[in-house]
């Protein structure tokens, strides 16, 4: 099935497909890099909450007829900064606070999507905001998406070493005179950028899959940090483009009705995660056996 895609000329010249491939690639790359940092900082739940909450911004944008990417981004950035501030004030039980914010954000989304459905001009806003709709992304979003992706990648590159050091142990970073707050705040902003791109492609609810999945798989296998970034980028990009190709194909499986792209992307990421777990376990077992053999000898 997948093999037939490149031979199908419609795929490459189709405008919505090209937009989906471009925005999807940007989202996958940024999510791979920012996702690795997020998983290393053990902030997967915060990332998930941020993505869910960004849906309120996305649905507000649909209601007001604004660029949805900026809607997702505005909401995610505002909440990221608030959560970082709470962290700075050493608010106890961070996970509880995150959970409460997540709930409130989704409640707001419910209200805005209700307005969208009853008086908005865009049909299907709820599906698009929550679960994505890559073939309906307007082409006008491409330059904005690329700018957001570029900014996120540059910021991530700047804090590359300080973030690794802070993830190792914040006190070790402080002992080197590093301003850990500035690093975590910058990371929070890149997280907001990544989450808004992911929400634009696979939807706010599924954004975690793109953010956390490839990074988690890569971090299990990689031996060094840069390897993890490359691996996560390959998994994310492979899943995103593969998902787009499969969704395009699916128009021929059930004539006239294609399956959602998000479904395929998320499934491919899930498969990649299972494979990486299997590979990591196998490698661990092999290393254990080698060690045992050495000691026995």
């Amino acid at each position: 099935m997948l093999m037939s895609v490149p031979s199908n000329p419609g795929f490459w010249v189709n405008e919505p497909v090209r937009v989906a491939l471009t925005v999807g690639a940007g989202a996958a790359l940024v999510c791979a890099v920012v996702g690795c940092a997020t998983v290393m900082r053990r902030q997967a739940f915060a990332g998930h909450a941020l993505a869910d909450v960004s849906s309120a911004g996305g649905s507000a944008a649909y209601l007001l007829g604004l660029n949805p990417l900026l809607g997702f981004l505005g909401m995610a950035a505002a909440v990221a900064v608030v959560m970082e501030w709470a962290d700075m004030r050493e608010v106890r039980e961070r996970d509880l606070l995150t959970g409460v914010v997540l709930g409130a954000g989704l409640g707001l989304t419910a209200l805005l999507l209700y307005f969208d459905a009853t008086m908005g001009s865009v049909s299907g806003a709820a599906m698009t905001v929550l679960f994505g709709s890559m073939f309906t992304i307007p082409a006008t979003i491409v330059p904005v998406a690329l700018a957001v992706a570029g900014a996120a990648l540059v910021a991530s590159a700047i804090i590359y070493r300080p973030l690794l050091l802070s993830a190792l142990a914040a006190d070790l970073a402080r002992a080197q005179g590093l301003r850990v707050r500035a690093v975590t705040l910058t990371h929070a902003v890149t997280l907001a950028l990544a989450v808004s791109l992911a929400a634009m492609t696979v939807g706010a609810i599924l954004a975690t899959a793109l953010l956390i999945g490839p990074a988690a798989a890569a971090l299990r296998l990689a031996r060094r940090p840069f390897e993890a970034l490359v691996l996560a980028a390959l998994i994310g990009l492979g899943a995103t483009w593969g998902g787009i190709a499969l969704a395009y194909e699916s128009f021929y499986w059930t004539p006239g009705r294609g399956w959602p792209v998000s479904f395929f992307i998320v499934i491919l990421i899930f498969v990649a995660y299972l494979l990486s777990s299997w590979a990591a376990t196998r490698r661990g077992a092999r290393r254990g056996a080698a060690l045992y053999g050495c000691e026995g000898a």
Binding site: I158, R161, L165, L168, L178
Partner: peptide, 27 residues
Amino acid sequence: IALDPGLPLRARDVVALGLDGARLGPA
């Protein structure tokens, strides 16, 4: 100090971070 087994850092990388981990950008 408990070093997270989930971090893809070799002993060598940890020593390198001691040298210049506070500098900006990749090494």
